[in-house]
């Protein structure tokens, strides 16, 4: 790492030894995977062995951050940034530029890219021109003109979202909240005798509907800041917080489960695909 006066710290002997050990371990792994591969040709075995070993190296490099920040983690992190940026760029190019723009822009290009030509449209040329203008953002003196395509992007998003959110996330959600508070009433005895989640468990189903109706109202009361949260309004707001806390708890639980599933997937890869000991 560079220091203020330009001197550089050379890696210590311990770091060099660790680097050599890691390199040797993964080299052995590569050779081992290549020699035990099941592919048709030697070349494919060598390639697959390298790919699995490299994926295992990257996986362990990221996990090494649990101990501390280190050169292996930084290597994997920087590689991830570069490769994934290019990945999304390429997908954008092939699916949008070649998939949507080229068929409306040029017969020659459509033939070259082997996509069916549809019809010329000035509309798409304007879109392409706006896209090129967006790249002007990289030029310090002409950066201001990039606001035009930015305005197109924001304007389209605002126009689409205004009506769509109003319809799907506001009206539909409000409409779905109005549910029967006593589900399929068949008398008090039947109502209290079945505490199951099944369709005939009316108490639980009715309780669920009550919670949804009251919970949504109280949750909205909590988000209403134009009136002081006092008295009945304060009590409703407090109930709203509790409902929101249950939501956050449930979301947290699901997030943890999702992450643990990914962790299990990576550990399975290391022990099964790489080390073949499962």
């Amino acid at each position: 790492m560079a220091t203020g006066n330009g001197n550089r710290k050379s890696p210590s002997n311990a770091v060099k030894i660790i680097l050599v050990i890691v390199a040797v371990v993964f080299l052995i792994s590569w050779i081992s995977k290549a020699t035990t591969g099941m592919a048709d040709s030697t070349w494919l075995n060598i390639r697959d062995g390298f790919l699995i070993t490299f994926a295992a190296f990257l996986t362990l490099s990221i996990f090494s951050f649990l101990y501390n920040d280190n050169p292996f983690y930084k290597f994997a992190e920087h590689l991830y940034v570069g490769v994934s940026a290019a990945y999304w760029m390429c997908l954008g190019f092939w699916s949008i530029i070649v998939g949507n723009f080229v068929p409306h822009a040029s017969k020659t290009l459509s033939t070259f890219f082997k996509v069916p030509f549809q019809e010329y449209s000035w509309f798409y040329y304007v879109a392409f021109a706006f896209g090129v203008i967006l790249l002007m953002r990289l030029l310090p003196k002409a950066g201001w003109i990039a606001r035009w395509p930015l305005a197109v992007i924001i304007g389209t998003t605002a126009g689409f979202n205004l009506s769509r959110y109003l319809h799907s996330d506001f009206m539909s959600q409000v409409g779905n909240t109005f549910q029967p508070l006593f589900v399929d009433w068949q008398g008090a005895g039947h109502f209290f005798s079945n505490l199951s989640l099944a369709a005939d468990g009316q108490l639980v189903m009715s309780a669920g509907n009550w919670i949804v109706v009251v919970g949504v109202l109280c949750g909205l009361v909590y988000f209403f800041f134009s009136k002081e949260h006092k008295g009945m309004f304060g009590a409703a707001s407090r109930l709203g917080i509790w409902i929101l806390m249950i939501t956050f708890g449930a979301s947290f639980g699901y997030t943890v489960m999702g992450r643990i599933s990914l962790l299990v997937g990576r550990i399975t890869f290391l022990f099964d695909d790489w080390l073949s000991i499962l």
Binding site: D169, F170, Q173, V174, N176, T177, A207, G208, N209, I211, V212, V213, V214, G215, V216, C218, G219, L220, Y222, F223, G240, I243, L244, I246, T247, F248, A250, S251
Partner: peptide
């Protein structure tokens, strides 16, 4: 039930 109510309140907001 409660999670749906909270999610719905957040979505409406």
């Amino acid at each position: 039930s409660p999670n749906l109510a909270g999610q719905r309140a957040i979505m409406i907001g």
